[in-house]
Amino acid sequence: MSLVRIQKKDFSVSEEVEMVKASSMSIGGVVVFLGTARDVSKGEDIIELEFESYPEMAEKKLNDIRERAIKNFNIIEMALIHRIGKIAIGENIVLIIAAARHRNDAFMACEWAISELKRITPIWKKETTKKGDVWVEERP
């Protein structure tokens, strides 16, 4: 399975980590960022979230982030997975795994990758509250 995916169904963090680890025996540190659905946003109770993407472009951008992370951060492998569709509170939204020989490179690459994902990947979040549905415009 590809290490870069946009998908409706949930993912298993441990299975994805194993898949990244399997890419090289030189990996000595793995950093995982897992984004999950929180129950409050700007003081409003959230009932559920829904994510929409521009699928072809979003996958292209995630692949671009992976390639640049491997090239610029001295990491061995990276996985980026983002879910779309309706997501209940507490469920997984996004997973980034950075694997390197040493932990510092993995931490730096992982932090850069989630920021870059938010900046260049055409994915949009809709929050459902008691007051109705709102497409979120600004980055958190």
Binding site: F51, S53, M57, V94, K118, P122, P140
Partner: peptide, 24 residues
């Protein structure tokens, strides 16, 4: 691909209007 004001648009192109992103 992200376009700038001078990007040329021609027959057969796919143009997408992208509101501010909020993934992640």
């Amino acid at each position: 691909e992200f376009a700038a004001s001078g990007t040329i648009i021609k027959d057969g192109d796919e143009v997408a209007l992208l509101p501010p992103f909020s993934g992640g």
